[in-house]
Design a protein around this nucleic acid. Structure first.
Length: 172
DNA sequence: TCAGTGATTAGG
DNA sequence: CTAATCACTGAG
């Protein structure tokens, strides 16, 4: 079976506006408890970019929850929302710059809450290094996809500039 | 449109 | 300690 190349530190330490649009078409790989590996094509992501971004969790500075966003790119930021759902994010940029990509959809399971539930991703993945981890990583299989972009979802509390900026990228 | 559901956060 | 909030989902 063809093994794609694993995305490395160099890939994730770029600015989130470079990392996010290059993720749709890549394969999210998760090692199950039975040691089988599931591979799922990423179909939709959103970029959250620094303390100035009013929709970013780091917009009010560093907290216990968003601490990992300040690490160098490639670490996983998981958080629990609405009492039910885990959200999967991958940290981007250099150390000290809080940026992350929210994985909103994979082929067959669109919706950030649905995909984490299906893949059994929870808080135990918080801080996992997606460049080195044995249970979650991302591969490039050379799949070419047509990327579209639009406004981010569910951030109506943010000011109009941040609410309307088109930082959601998805497979057309 | 709206409720479910509980961690996180700011503020006393 | 309290109360408000929330990068969602599914039902009506």
């Amino acid at each position: 079976m063809y093994q794609g190349s694993r995305l490395n530190r160099e890939f994730f330490t770029r600015d989130v506006l470079e990392v996010a649009p290059s993720l749709p078409g890549k394969l999210l790989c998760v090692s199950g408890s039975n040691s089988n590996v599931g591979r799922y094509m990423i179909t939709e992501v959103e970029a959250y970019r620094g303390e100035e971004d009013e929709a970013c969790h780091a917009c009010r500075g560093r907290t216990t929850r968003n601490e990992i966003m300040y690490h160098t790119g490639g670490f996983i930021y998981m958080y629990f929302i609405y009492g039910m759902y885990w959200m999967l994010n991958i940290v981007a940029a250099e150390k000290g710059i809080p940026q992350a990509v929210l994985i909103r959809g994979i082929k067959g399971f669109n919706g950030p809450g649905k995909l984490t539930k299906h893949l059994n991703l929870d808080g135990s993945y918080y801080g996992e290094d997606i460049c080195e981890s044995g249970r979650i990583w991302v591969e490039d299989h050379g799949i070419k996809v047509d990327i579209a972009k639009g406004k981010r979802i569910g951030i109506n509390y943010a000011g109009s500039y941040w609410r309307d900026i088109e930082w959601r990228y998805y497979v057309r």
